[in-house]
Amino acid sequence: MVNVTLRVNGETRSASVPPETTLLRLLRDQFNLTGSKLGCDVGDCGACTVIVDGQPVNSCLMLVGQVEGREVLTIEGLANADHLYPLQKLFEHFGSLQCGFCGPGVIMSAKALLDENPDPSTEEIRDALGGNLCRCTGYTKMIEAIKGASCILRGEEAPLVKSA
């Protein structure tokens, strides 16, 4: 057993777990933060993406030993009691997710992208989502929503209705 203390969504959390525990299992099984999903457990699908110290990572590949003292942001930490995070709002509006299983990972990857690059091109968005598999949507409506969210985050008006 190892003791680990880290910050998750702005709160200090700690647990005592076997050393082979991944950050994903820690979040899901110990902290009841089940928003991050397990799609493969080996870094292939991106369903477990969270942001650690500003960087998007596959939480299934990170062991507890690597997260001591670090700042983790999960899908549960994006909205607050007043507002949906713009990505969440636009993903809902555009119907960007279908089964939704890939969603938390995709949104975290997109959030990391927008933090770095407030006005990404379609190509840059495709690149940023390259590690997030989605079997349902063909990614099209996600890209639209990410573009829209980038407008909102830049303080511009988002195109809410799709210009077909």
Partner: peptide, 23 residues
Amino acid sequence: QRASRADGRLHGLGQTKYIDDMY
């Protein structure tokens, strides 16, 4: 109507409960 899905918001918040999310 281009009505958005009722579960769309839950998906985006990570609140949709799939089987593996039930304990």
